[in-house]
Design a binder for these strands. Structure first.
Lengths: 194, 194
DNA sequence: CCGATTTTATACCGACCGGTATAATTCTTC
DNA sequence: GAAGAATTATACCGGTCGGTATAAAATCGG
């Protein structure tokens, strides 16, 4: 009952996601959001709470819709395929024509004012979650003999995540997909072979 | 003639540099700057013009005082040493205890509002300048037989810069120097040997 | 048609943004 | 000491920030 809302909340969240992706958390104003969504401020606050809650919803949607490859890649049978699929997946998401450049998490993670420290902490934590999951996967690979006995799973995970974050910077600076693909190929030469 | 200024402009610029480094261009307010410098707004504007000019001065100082290693590294005799010195130099700057984490250029480069597009363009351009200089150096190495004939200098330069940018994200997320050193060692395994 | 309920649109809030006008203060030079 | 030049402190500018109070409009069950 009550007056039905005149916009699709899911579409609006997608718009918010793309704006945050392109312009970062603090770089995106409420006016940017309402203009993009085609709704008014009370509608935004009534539907999504406030800017921070809206960002967190957008972040969750981003992880579900654009970072799903990460958790799929972890299930690949060997560590090299895990690593390659993750890097390729990041590059695909970061250089998709219809998407903003780079990575929402990396874009939003960088410098921020004192007012956004909570968002910054969340972002750093999300990166750590992925990195630790990858390290556990590589540790399993090491125990399975899939990685050399003298390899360091945490260092390898950090290496893969670092390359992924570097590609995000490249992509948001305008690098093309093929160029970044070749970069992934170079990086994979560092990865130990089973 | 005239009343002498009561603060050291060089010290003030250093403070601005560190604030911009830590919080980014838009994340640093004029009040942050004047409070940190211990001066008033008219003094800031009288000495440095405006926020954008102050940032550009800080950026220039950053490149001179913290990125000098880059141009020195380009003069190393062989390509592997060039690459290694550049990566080590970046890590050193990004993980210096007394410095803010990460890289001022990378931190400031990420997401930004429409109002800061000019700054964003400058930042992307500074990255490109370094990357192209490195590609030229690797091209010379290739001609000198210091890199394999089938290697691609531009791809190698992009790889090194990408790892450097990735380390900046790691460092501004709190990674320690030794961890990032090991990451550089892994990355260097990808680099062709003469 | 009548509340009850929910979403709209408009107008507004205090705080802060980058930037500046005004005038008092402190110096050098004559 | 007076004139002139430069820096200081204070107070203020319009604009935008994130967020909200108020009330009109649109739907429901009765």
């Amino acid at each position: 009952m009550g007056r039905p809302r005149e916009f699709d909340a899911d579409d609006a969240l997608q718009t918010a996601l793309e704006l945050f992706w392109r312009k970062g958390y603090e770089g995106t104003s409420i006016t940017d959001l309402t203009d993009g969504m085609g709704i008014t401020k009370p509608s935004l606050y009534g539907t999504f709470g406030n800017k921070e809650e809206l960002f967190r919803m957008a972040l969750q949607r981003y992880e579900e819709n654009y970072m799903a490859f990460f958790w799929s890649a972890l299930e690949q049978p060997d560590a090299r395929t895990v690593a390659f699929d993750i890097l390729r997946g990041f590059v695909n998401a970061q250089t998709e024509e219809c998407n903003p450049g780079g990575c929402l998490v990396v874009n939003a993670a960088r410098a921020c004012s004192d007012a956004a420290l909570e968002i910054h902490k969340t972002i750093v934590e999300r990166i750590q979650v992925g990195q630790k999951a990858l390290a556990r996967r590589f540790d399993r690979a090491k125990r399975e003999g899939d990685l050399p006995a003298d390899s360091n799973p945490e260092d390898l995970a950090r290496f893969i995540m670092t390359v992924a974050q570097g590609t995000a910077v490249q992509a948001s600076s305008g690098a093309g997909r093929d160029e970044v693909y070749r970069l992934v190929d170079i990086a994979m030469k560092s990865f130990p072979r089973s």
